[in-house]
Nucleic acid binder design. Structure first.
Lengths: 109, 109
DNA sequence: ATCGTTGTTCAAGACTATCGAACTATTGAA
DNA sequence: TTCAATAGTTCGATAGTCTTGAACAACGAT
């Protein structure tokens, strides 16, 4: 098995898909960490601790299919990177606005 | 029955809740219409045509509990208004960015 | 070759969405 | 006042999705 990763072309990325993907706290946190890091991160380091691997894998699949991240196998691990440039041209300012709101939500709590 | 509407105080409105609510095409469309209109709209006129009432009702409930709209009974109908000012202070620029992206998604299709 | 690490796939139970049917509440008319 | 029409809500059932343990696959190092 172990099917290859599927990344949608940027034209078929939908707003609904992006919002749905980011509506989950775990997935939002993953994207936040990826955006902070700048470069790629493997699955474990970008996801919150103590989360079952199968659940992580599911979340990365959602993010991938939404068009938010690109996943590449690098030896034993999978390196995930934000597709920021592509998304930035398709939906200018969208992801930054959401990440900014995530920071705002954090400071109030 | 017919319980009174519950509107969360703006402090307990979460980013996840907003994103989740707007991740559905029907709900996003409702918010778009409400934002265009400026003033309140009843449930039927803001929702897409040919949608079962029970489903509409469910969607409005999600929007209400997410803190995006305020619903008030006015006689036989329910008037819904965007809570734009409150959301704008809690998450500045968030909803406008999403609505802008919705327009961008439309023009490409 | 075997083992440890990283991540995927599968299956089952819990949770959520959709929608028809029945119900509630208010308005207007007879 | 009673009756009917209108606008939404609630309930129940079916179908789809999330979570997670268990088993599996792939690579690197010893």
């Amino acid at each position: 098995m172990q099917r290859p990763f599927v990344h949608p072309p940027i034209e078929s990325v939908t707003l609904e898909g992006i919002l749905y993907a980011l509506a989950d706290p775990v997935r939002l946190e993953i994207i936040r960490r990826l955006s902070k890091e700048g470069c790629g991160m493997n699955c474990q380091s970008a996801a919150p601790m103590n989360m079952p691997r199968s659940t992580q894998s599911h979340h990365y699949q959602i993010l991938r299919e939404a068009g938010l991240i690109r996943s590449e196998r690098r030896g034993v691990e999978v390196v995930n990177t934000l597709r920021c440039d592509e998304i930035g041209t398709r939906f200018p300012g969208l992801v930054p606005a959401i990440l900014k709101a995530a920071v705002a939500a954090e400071t109030v709590v």
